[in-house]
Protein backbone atom coordinates (compact mmCIF):
# COMPACT_ATOMS: atom_id res chain seq x y z
CA UNK A 1 0.00 0.00 0.00
CA UNK A 2 2.82 2.33 1.02
CA UNK A 3 4.70 1.40 -2.12
CA UNK A 4 1.66 2.21 -4.25
CA UNK A 5 1.33 5.57 -2.53
CA UNK A 6 4.97 6.30 -3.21
CA UNK A 7 4.53 5.41 -6.86
CA UNK A 8 1.46 7.61 -7.22
CA UNK A 9 3.29 10.46 -5.56
CA UNK A 10 6.28 9.97 -7.81
CA UNK A 11 3.97 9.92 -10.86
CA UNK A 12 2.54 13.25 -9.72
CA UNK A 13 5.97 14.75 -9.17
CA UNK A 14 7.25 13.68 -12.59
CA UNK A 15 4.09 14.97 -14.16
CA UNK A 16 4.54 18.34 -12.46
CA UNK A 17 8.15 18.46 -13.58
CA UNK A 18 7.78 17.63 -17.28
CA UNK A 19 4.05 17.79 -17.95
CA UNK A 20 2.65 20.06 -20.60
CA UNK A 21 0.17 20.32 -23.41
CA UNK A 22 0.55 20.95 -27.09
CA UNK A 23 -1.97 21.51 -29.83
CA UNK A 24 -1.17 21.38 -33.50
CA UNK A 25 -2.58 24.04 -35.81
CA UNK A 26 -2.33 22.55 -39.30
CA UNK A 27 -3.62 25.66 -41.09
CA UNK A 28 -0.93 27.79 -39.44
CA UNK A 29 1.70 25.16 -40.19
CA UNK A 30 0.69 25.13 -43.87
CA UNK A 31 1.02 28.90 -44.11
CA UNK A 32 4.51 28.71 -42.58
CA UNK A 33 5.80 25.80 -44.67
CA UNK A 34 4.87 26.72 -48.23
CA UNK A 35 8.24 25.66 -49.67
CA UNK A 36 7.94 22.12 -48.33
CA UNK A 37 4.36 21.90 -49.54
CA UNK A 38 5.39 23.00 -53.03
CA UNK A 39 8.21 20.44 -53.07
CA UNK A 40 5.76 17.77 -51.91
CA UNK A 41 3.29 18.57 -54.71
CA UNK A 42 6.07 18.73 -57.30
CA UNK A 43 7.41 15.36 -56.23
CA UNK A 44 3.95 13.86 -56.33
CA UNK A 45 3.47 15.12 -59.87
CA UNK A 46 6.75 13.43 -60.87
CA UNK A 47 5.75 10.25 -59.03
CA UNK A 48 2.40 10.20 -60.83
CA UNK A 49 4.18 10.49 -64.18
CA UNK A 50 6.59 7.69 -63.23
CA UNK A 51 3.69 5.51 -62.10
CA UNK A 52 1.82 5.99 -65.38
CA UNK A 53 5.04 5.32 -67.36
CA UNK A 54 5.58 2.13 -65.35
CA UNK A 55 2.00 1.07 -66.05
CA UNK A 56 2.45 1.53 -69.79
CA UNK A 57 5.76 -0.35 -69.62
CA UNK A 58 3.99 -3.19 -67.85
CA UNK A 59 1.35 -3.29 -70.57
CA UNK A 60 3.97 -3.40 -73.33
CA UNK A 61 5.84 -6.15 -71.48
CA UNK A 62 2.65 -8.20 -71.27
CA UNK A 63 1.90 -7.63 -74.97
CA UNK A 64 5.46 -8.62 -75.93
CA UNK A 65 5.27 -11.76 -73.77
CA UNK A 66 1.93 -12.70 -75.32
CA UNK A 67 3.33 -12.13 -78.81
CA UNK A 68 6.35 -14.29 -77.98
CA UNK A 69 4.07 -17.08 -76.75
CA UNK A 70 2.00 -16.87 -79.94
CA UNK A 71 5.11 -16.97 -82.12
CA UNK A 72 6.36 -19.96 -80.19
CA UNK A 73 2.99 -21.68 -80.38
CA UNK A 74 2.51 -21.21 -84.12
CA UNK A 75 6.02 -21.31 -85.53
CA UNK A 76 8.39 -23.17 -83.25
CA UNK A 77 6.27 -25.73 -81.45
CA UNK A 78 5.13 -27.68 -84.57
CA UNK A 79 8.78 -28.06 -85.63
CA UNK A 80 9.99 -29.58 -82.39
CA UNK A 81 11.15 -33.10 -83.06
CA UNK A 82 10.75 -32.72 -86.83
CA UNK A 83 13.52 -32.23 -89.33
CA UNK A 84 13.22 -30.13 -92.46
CA UNK A 85 15.81 -30.60 -95.22
CA UNK A 86 16.61 -27.30 -96.85
CA UNK A 87 19.16 -27.92 -99.62
CA UNK A 88 19.76 -30.18 -102.50
CA UNK A 89 22.06 -33.12 -101.87
CA UNK A 90 24.04 -32.12 -104.94
CA UNK A 91 25.36 -29.06 -103.10
CA UNK A 92 27.31 -31.35 -100.86
CA UNK A 93 25.76 -30.14 -97.63
CA UNK A 94 22.35 -30.36 -96.12
CA UNK A 95 21.13 -27.87 -93.59
CA UNK A 96 18.34 -28.88 -91.38
CA UNK A 97 16.06 -26.69 -89.28
CA UNK A 98 15.71 -29.24 -86.53
CA UNK A 99 14.62 -28.37 -83.00
CA UNK A 100 15.71 -31.30 -80.86
CA UNK A 101 13.37 -32.85 -78.32
CA UNK A 102 14.83 -32.93 -74.81
CA UNK A 103 14.42 -36.72 -74.94
CA UNK A 104 16.94 -36.86 -77.81
CA UNK A 105 19.69 -35.04 -75.98
CA UNK A 106 22.48 -37.31 -74.69
CA UNK A 107 22.47 -36.44 -71.01
CA UNK A 108 24.33 -38.50 -68.41
CA UNK A 109 21.02 -39.77 -67.07
CA UNK A 110 19.84 -40.92 -70.48
CA UNK A 111 23.16 -42.59 -71.26
CA UNK A 112 22.98 -44.43 -67.93
CA UNK A 113 19.41 -45.46 -68.67
CA UNK A 114 20.42 -46.74 -72.11
CA UNK A 115 23.33 -48.71 -70.59
CA UNK A 116 21.05 -50.24 -67.97
CA UNK A 117 18.62 -51.20 -70.69
CA UNK A 118 20.89 -52.84 -73.21
CA UNK A 119 24.54 -52.40 -72.30
CA UNK A 120 27.16 -50.66 -74.45
CA UNK A 121 25.31 -51.50 -77.67
CA UNK A 122 22.26 -49.58 -76.48
CA UNK A 123 24.48 -46.61 -75.50
CA UNK A 124 26.06 -46.61 -78.95
CA UNK A 125 22.67 -46.76 -80.60
CA UNK A 126 21.39 -43.92 -78.43
CA UNK A 127 24.40 -41.76 -79.32
CA UNK A 128 23.93 -42.42 -83.02
CA UNK A 129 20.28 -41.53 -82.80
CA UNK A 130 21.06 -38.32 -80.87
CA UNK A 131 23.67 -37.27 -83.38
CA UNK A 132 21.29 -37.91 -86.23
CA UNK A 133 18.41 -36.09 -84.54
CA UNK A 134 20.37 -33.09 -83.36
CA UNK A 135 22.00 -32.66 -86.74
CA UNK A 136 25.64 -32.82 -85.66
CA UNK A 137 28.10 -31.05 -87.98
CA UNK A 138 30.82 -32.82 -89.96
CA UNK A 139 34.41 -32.63 -88.75
CA UNK A 140 35.53 -30.37 -91.61
CA UNK A 141 33.57 -27.54 -93.11
CA UNK A 142 34.88 -25.19 -95.83
CA UNK A 143 33.94 -21.55 -96.28
CA UNK A 144 32.16 -22.55 -99.48
CA UNK A 145 30.05 -25.06 -97.54
CA UNK A 146 29.03 -22.38 -95.05
CA UNK A 147 28.18 -20.01 -97.90
CA UNK A 148 26.08 -22.66 -99.62
CA UNK A 149 24.32 -23.45 -96.38
CA UNK A 150 23.61 -19.78 -95.79
CA UNK A 151 22.12 -19.39 -99.25
CA UNK A 152 20.15 -22.55 -98.83
CA UNK A 153 18.52 -21.21 -95.67
CA UNK A 154 17.28 -18.22 -97.64
CA UNK A 155 15.76 -20.47 -100.28
CA UNK A 156 13.88 -22.31 -97.51
CA UNK A 157 12.30 -25.65 -97.79
CA UNK A 158 12.86 -26.41 -101.43
CA UNK A 159 13.66 -29.99 -100.79
CA UNK A 160 10.34 -31.77 -100.74
CA UNK A 161 12.02 -34.48 -102.84
CA UNK A 162 14.44 -35.08 -100.02
CA UNK A 163 11.91 -36.19 -97.48
CA UNK A 164 13.62 -39.51 -97.03
CA UNK A 165 16.86 -37.80 -96.25
CA UNK A 166 16.11 -37.46 -92.52
CA UNK A 167 16.40 -41.24 -92.23
CA UNK A 168 20.06 -41.19 -93.22
CA UNK A 169 22.55 -41.60 -90.40
CA UNK A 170 24.57 -38.64 -91.59
CA UNK A 171 22.73 -35.82 -93.24
CA UNK A 172 26.01 -34.35 -94.53
CA UNK A 173 27.23 -37.34 -96.41
CA UNK A 174 26.14 -36.24 -99.88
CA UNK A 175 28.82 -35.83 -102.48
CA UNK A 176 29.09 -32.71 -104.48
CA UNK A 177 27.53 -33.07 -107.90
Amino acid sequence: MGKNNDETKLDGLIHDAVGGESRFDFAKWKSEHTEEIEAYHAMNAIDARIRSHRRSLKVSAIVTAAAAILVFAFLVWPDIGNETVLVKPGDGIVASSYTPLPAHLPTVGRLNAAFAEGGIDAVEKFCERSERKSGARPGRLTAMDIFIEFEANIETKKGSEYENQSDNNNAYSFDRA
Binding site: D11, L13, I14, H15, D16, A17, V18, G19, G20
Partner: peptide, 30 residues
Protein backbone atom coordinates in the same frame (compact mmCIF):
# COMPACT_ATOMS: atom_id res chain seq x y z
CA UNK B 1 8.17 25.95 -11.47
CA UNK B 2 10.59 27.04 -8.80
CA UNK B 3 9.49 24.30 -6.48
CA UNK B 4 12.53 22.60 -4.99
CA UNK B 5 11.18 19.08 -5.31
CA UNK B 6 10.20 19.62 -8.93
CA UNK B 7 13.71 20.83 -9.60
CA UNK B 8 15.12 17.69 -8.02
CA UNK B 9 12.82 15.55 -10.15
CA UNK B 10 13.86 17.37 -13.30
CA UNK B 11 17.47 16.94 -12.32
CA UNK B 12 16.91 13.23 -11.82
CA UNK B 13 15.25 13.00 -15.24
CA UNK B 14 18.08 14.84 -16.94
CA UNK B 15 20.50 12.32 -15.48
CA UNK B 16 18.70 9.46 -17.21
CA UNK B 17 19.87 7.89 -20.46
CA UNK B 18 18.44 9.70 -23.54
CA UNK B 19 16.19 6.72 -24.37
CA UNK B 20 14.87 6.62 -20.82
CA UNK B 21 14.33 10.37 -20.76
CA UNK B 22 12.35 10.13 -23.98
CA UNK B 23 10.10 7.51 -22.41
CA UNK B 24 9.47 9.72 -19.37
CA UNK B 25 8.58 12.70 -21.53
CA UNK B 26 6.31 10.60 -23.71
CA UNK B 27 4.49 9.25 -20.67
CA UNK B 28 4.13 12.41 -18.62
CA UNK B 29 4.07 15.15 -21.23
CA UNK B 30 0.46 15.44 -22.34
Amino acid sequence: SDNETSEAVRDAIEHLEPVERELVYLRYFN
